[in-house]
Design a binder for these strands. Structure first.
Length: 818
RNA sequence: GCCGGGAUGGCGGAACUGGCAGACGCGCGGGACUCAAAAUCCCGUGAGCUUCGGCUCGUGCGGGUUCGACCCCCGCUCCCGGCACCA
């Protein structure tokens, strides 16, 4: 009756044929009339083979790309590799394999797996960031940033990973530990390269309003990371030295409540002040402790710790003399590294005040009748209220008065309104080998000199020594760094650091538009045609790092007039994680499931469908629950594909049988539903609708009816999800000459989608008492009439008085009796 | 602590604008086919009660709005994720 569904035979056959046919190449023909669509997946990092996360993300991305192709778009669906980075270098150290060899091997492995998965990539645009023809342009972009003052070198305290022997960006430090290896991050003072992303803080924030198709959580994370706060800078004078020290505060309305002053222990003025006040010995341990901690996290410190510096500050608003402290709870990395302490209205200041017996003065009273008392209060009050003890501002309501106070400070020359951001400049130097060398030459006479564009790329030497310790591999290389200065010709040295790999990944999506272009990173007209990206798909782990950096790069390129837009990815879709047994997969837990063995066992289509059917794309998938406890048990989607083959084969066998109108209508409804679901990336419900169609086809065929139109629609609707099975159904079972993936997405007739009859629900007091099939175009009177006659309603209404009738023809009638 | 997202059968999930809660699938139970098993197909499957007609309860908890609430409002609990002394 029906042939057996055998993915292991079907899939490799079509994979080969598709490659011979050269499908999936995007057209750069400017006369191609089709609208363009750029379907982009976050490019993978080549460590080992594909994992379940890749399988999930790329299954979704490929479904979108294939759907867009079938709906008449000229689709750009490229693939490449984020190929620089530490794991390659660590593998080299551990196993003696050169980083390039290790990387290439993994890439070939992953590329083969992607092909096996049936991904519709345009392989002709494939790129790798470790290719000199790619990093040449990474370096070129660095030099453009350098020219514009957006790449600069400075000495600053930085995060140092003692395990990976390199510095890290703030974004790569998670709770005081290295994002990559988990080692405790140390603080070091080093001279390093930075990108001036802080210049773009406000634009990065403002333009988020246009990213309406981004997940809310990603926008929130970026907003928090940029961390804009409005407030004021106020200058305090140190009584003993006459120095002016600035603080940043979001609450200038509490200035009259300042009772002490606190420096970060790392504040540049602290040592001298402590020396002056005779408290250097007490300060020293706190300084040492801070040094040991990372840049971003001081979690070891207690808010109550701190030492008196022996000096005093003068409050500019009332001339009061207040003691100065140094304390670890004040961060050097935020604001000015010094704060005015208002213990009555700030929790941390209050804790410190109580510990050190400092006065607490209330300057905001909440409301009449609930007066706060400084000496006895146990909780700081940061809410709204009326200003008291605040000189000219007594009686004003706070914090509404902030703008007024800031204006007053400015007119008095004691401060000014300002905006502060948490965002720091992007530290991009890495003291490692496997990255794009920073194209700068340090000349004893000319200083920092850009490598001339024509000398790019600055190539990595093949014969570096990767052993850890001492200097970085490039610094240690016997000849590599020695060059003549491009300006004066004198002896000079190359910068021996490489760039953070996030620099490579901040522009790869532009390169896909102009693969192999030799006169720049991309051709402006190619980018203008293809971009911004139509749909970007990838993991939420890039919510801050990659996505913020790429937005920054795009804005800089826009300012350079190289691209006509300011946001690269207007639409973003985050797939959920694939976990196992409620926990993320990890070797140490022994719960890692690999996708490729499952593909070998059940076929790529089944694995793709299992992932997309398991739930909403953005939700996590627990493979233990959806993949089945027993790996030998046939997955549900595999059984469904088997049924699909059997119904299509039956339909063909009985193609002379009449296709009943209910089935034809269901086909149209299914086309409509699947189309709408795809537009909203609701893959799970799209698949369920196809399953309903399959079930109905089975029933129809069993009843002697035909199902040819349904079979054709099913093959086409299935194509974006299960490309191999759909192709087999289309070309082999249905005998179509050309690929299903080149066919035009089916359309539906709205007249056929509309139902002739609908279910009328009859309620009594909101409870369902009967359901009746009624004509879809029934009017209110007819609906009411019909409902009155319903048996269930009559019974329920027995001896009750109907007070009101709610009629919503044709769906519902509700009799209200009380 | 702050911010964001959640909580629906044994399980994954569905319910689009406030109108039949549980689509579809998994699992489980029963049956057909088979010497048998696997595969496949058919039927059943929220809970309790039932005179087998139905009835009652049911979407984390407590209130509210409404003819009607998984959906809207107020107050909680718990879970997941992010940030975390941000002045």
């Amino acid at each position: 009756m029906s042939r057996r569904y055998d993915a292991s035979e079907i899939e490799p056959r079509w994979q080969r044929i598709w490659e011979e046919e050269g499908r999936y190449a995007a057209s750069d023909d400017p006369d191609d009339p089709r609208p363009r669509f750029y379907a982009l997946d976050m490019f993978p990092y080549p460590s080992g083979d594909l994992h379940m996360g890749h399988a999930e993300a790329f299954s979704g991305g490929d479904t979108v790309a294939r759907y867009k192709t079938m709906t008449g778009h000229n689709v750009l669906h490229p693939i490449g590799w984020d190929a620089f980075g530490l794991p390659a270098e660590n593998a080299a150290i551990k196993r003696g394999v050169p980083p390039r060899a290790w990387t290439e091997e993994n890439i070939e492995h992953q590329a083969a797996s992607f092909r096996r998965m049936g991904m519709s990539f345009d392989w002709s645009r494939r790129l790798e960031t470790c290719d000199p023809e790619y990093y040449r342009w990474t370096q070129w972009l660095f030099l453009r940033f350098f020219e514009r003052g957006l790449a600069y070198r400075k000495s600053s305290p930085v995060n140092w990973c003692p395990n990976d022997h390199t510095v890290l960006a703030n974004e790569q430090v998670i709770q005081g530990a290295c994002e990559r290896c988990g080692a405790r991050v140390e603080r070091r003072d080093l001279t390093q390269w930075f990108f001036k992303i802080t210049d773009y803080a406000q634009r990065l924030l403002d333009d988020m309003d246009t990213l309406i198709d981004w997940p809310e959580r990603v926008l929130t994370m970026q907003r928090n990371w940029i961390g804009r706060s409005e407030g004021a800078r106020v200058s305090f004078t140190i009584e003993e030295t006459g120095e002016q020290i600035e603080v940043f505060t979001t609450r200038p309305d509490t200035l009259w409540g300042v009772t002490f002053f606190v420096f970060s222990v790392e504040h540049p003025a602290v040592r001298d002040l402590a020396a002056r006040g005779g408290t250097l010995a007490a300060l020293e341990p706190l300084v040492q402790e801070a040094r040991a901690a990372s840049m971003t996290s001081h979690e070891e410190a207690d808010t109550k710790d701190g030492v008196f510096l022996g000096v005093h500050a003068i409050n500019p608003v009332n001339g009061e003399r207040i003691p100065c402290y140094a304390a670890p709870y004040v961060l050097m990395g935020y604001g000015t590294g010094a704060i005015m302490a208002v213990p009555a209205h700030d929790e941390r200041d209050l804790a410190f005040a109580r510990q050190h017996d400092l006065p607490v003065r209330v300057v905001i009273q909440p409301a009449v009748g609930e007066l706060l008392d400084g000496p006895t209060m146990t909780e700081a009050y940061s809410g709204e209220g009326v200003m008291v003890n605040s000189g000219p501002f007594d009686g004003e309501s706070a914090p509404a008065s902030i703008a007024k106070v800031a204006a007053w400070l400015e007119s008095e020359g004691r401060g000014r309104a300002t905006v502060n951001y948490r965002l720091r400049d992007w530290l991009l130097s890495r003291q490692r080998y496997w990255g794009a060398p920073i194209p700068i030459i340090h000349c004893p006479t000319c200083g920092e000199v850009a490598v001339p564009d024509e000398d790019l790329p600055v190539r990595l030497p093949d014969d570096a020594d990767f052993e850890l310790g001492g200097e970085s591999p490039l610094a240690r290389h016997p000849t590599w760094k020695h060059v003549a200065c491009p300006d004066c010709g004198g002896e000079a040295e190359r910068d021996t650091d490489t760039m953070d790999t996030f620099v490579d990944s901040s522009w790869y999506f532009f390169r896909y538009c102009s693969p192999g272009y030799e006169d720049g990173p991309f051709r402006a007209q190619d980018v203008a045609r293809w971009m911004p990206v139509g749909q970007y798909t990838g993991g939420v782990e890039h919510a801050i790092l990659h996505l913020l950096y790429s937005r920054f790069f795009t804005k800089v390129l826009h300012d350079m007039e190289l691209v006509p837009f300011t946001e690269p990815f207007p639409k973003l879709m985050n797939q959920g994680q694939v976990i196992y047994g409620g926990a993320s997969m990890s070797k140490s837990k022994g719960n890692v499931v690999e996708p490729m063995p499952l593909v070998a066992r059940w076929g790529a289509d089944t694995i793709r469908l299992t992932m997309l059917f398991a739930g909403p794309f953005e939700d996590d998938i627990d493979w233990k629950l959806v993949g089945g406890e027993d790996e030998h048990r046939r997955p549900g989607p595999h059984a469904w594909l088997g049924r699909a083959f059997s119904v299509v084969a039956d339909a063909v066998e009985h193609d002379e049988a009449i296709e009943p109108p209910q089935l034809v209508k269901l086909v149209h409804r299914t086309v409509k539903g699947v189309t709408e679901d795809l537009e909203r990336f609701r893959f799970n419900t799209a698949i369920s609708k196809m399953q309903v169609l399959t079930n109905e086809m089975r029933a129809t065929l069993d009843g002697g009816g035909g199902a040819m139109a349904a079979a054709r629609a099913l093959a086409q609707l299935l194509a974006p999800f299960a490309p191999y099975a759909a192709e087999e159904l289309w070309r082999v079972e249905l005998g179509e000459p050309d690929s299903v993936h080149a066919s035009t997405w089916p359309t539906y007739d709205p007249a056929l989608v509309r139902a002739d009859t609908v279910t009328l629900v009859v309620q009594v007091d909101g409870k369902v008492r009967a359901t009746l099939e009624v004509p879809a175009d029934i009017d209110e009177a007819g609906a009411l009439e019909t409902a009155r006659g319903a048996e269930g309603a009559l019974r329920a209404l027995d001896r009750r008085t109907v007070l009101k009738e709610i009629v919503r023809a044709p769906r519902l009638v509700n009799f209200v009796t009380k």
